[in-house]
Design a protein around this nucleic acid. Structure first.
Length: 293
DNA sequence: ATTAATGTTCAGAA
DNA sequence: TTTCTGAACATTAA
């Protein structure tokens, strides 16, 4: 479930690769169901070898390794994809291994070569690895354009992109073509902080509420980044150095069905299904009708 | 032993 | 243009 904060944590964790040269690229095991590589795996791996990594970036929920040949390696973790830096053992379901050598020139002519290993692991195998033209950014990393990153957007832009829709605001927040980076966890969390019912139609939301929602999104995403993301009970996500995220302890509504709302201390958190996904909210803090006379 | 549920993206259809 | 449905997949809980 890597959403924006989890992918940002991955990005920060593999920053030590920047400046290094890829000396090996391969997939250590043959899977019955390989993930999607573009171009196909063998050609992709061959194209990576010898390239220098010039930057590591993030766009929505995608991780981007810029290379010195104007291309970019784009990793889409989707459900269970994650990266690890210098893992003690090679785990199962590894989809890509990158050996990266960095040279550090010491003042007195000592040449120190540091070799690092980055792996992309994906248990369910829904993730993708693509090598794309690095100049076509920022929007079209995949087959479809994605919207602006949730941390870069202004509140007016949020309103303009979603405000005319009739669907539930929570469903709209998950549309990566409208706004990139928000997933199931942080959509519920942000709506709770903004005191907006998740089923409220976008077109019924006022300017003031869009402002509140925008502010809540920024706050929730930044808090989550500071906590290195959310590691849920399935343990599918962890940081590149294999530490658990801590934001799950700070969730206000997500997977807290039946608990008392931490905000108003009166409501009991409810779970509903919106757009086929679990949605959590406080019926007291987030009334269906805003009562703003 | 089945079956449901998990969350993200995409193809295809309404 | 927008919205909905099902498929892709592994693992666990019921």
């Amino acid at each position: 479930m890597p959403e924006l904060p989890e992918v940002e944590t991955m990005r920060r964790g593999i920053l030590p690769l920047v400046g290094g040269v890829i000396v090996e690229a391969f997939c250590p095991t043959s899977h019955h169901h390989p993930i999607k590589y573009s171009p196909p795996a063998d050609r992709l791996f061959a194209m990576l070898v010898g390239r220098r990594i010039t930057a590591v970036e993030r766009c929505g929920k995608r991780l981007l390794l810029r290379l010195d040949d104007e291309r970019a390696l784009v990793i889409e973790p989707r459900m269970t994809g994650r990266v690890m830096l210098d893992p003690p053992q090679i785990p199962s379901h590894v989809r890509l291994v990158l050996q990266v050598v960095s040279e550090h020139q010491e003042p007195h002519a000592t040449l120190d070569c540091a070799e690092r290993t980055m792996i992309f692991r994906d248990v369910r195998g829904l993730g993708t690895v693509r090598l794309l033209d690095g100049n076509t950014f920022p929007a079209e990393l995949g087959p479809h354009k994605i919207g602006p990153d949730a941390l870069e957007i202004y509140w007016q832009e949020l309103r303009d992109r979603l405000g005319h829709r009739k669907c539930a605001v929570k469903v709209a927040l998950l549309d990566q073509k409208a706004i990139a980076g928000v997933g199931n966890i942080y959509a519920s969390e942000a709506l709770h902080l903004a005191k907006i019912h998740p089923a409220m139609p976008c077109c019924a939301i006022t300017n003031r509420q869009w402002q509140r929602l925008h502010e809540a999104l920024q706050r929730v995403l930044k808090e989550a980044i500071a906590s290195q993301g959310s590691t849920l009970s399935d343990g599918a996500y962890a940081t590149p150095s294999n530490e658990a995220g801590r934001y799950q302890h700070l969730h206000r509504v997500y997977q807290r069905t039946g608990e008392r709302c931490c905000q108003c201390r009166r409501g009991i958190i409810r779970r509903i299904v919106l757009g086929q996904r679990s949605t959590f909210y406080c019926p007291v803090c987030q009334p269906i009708r805003s009562r703003n006379h």
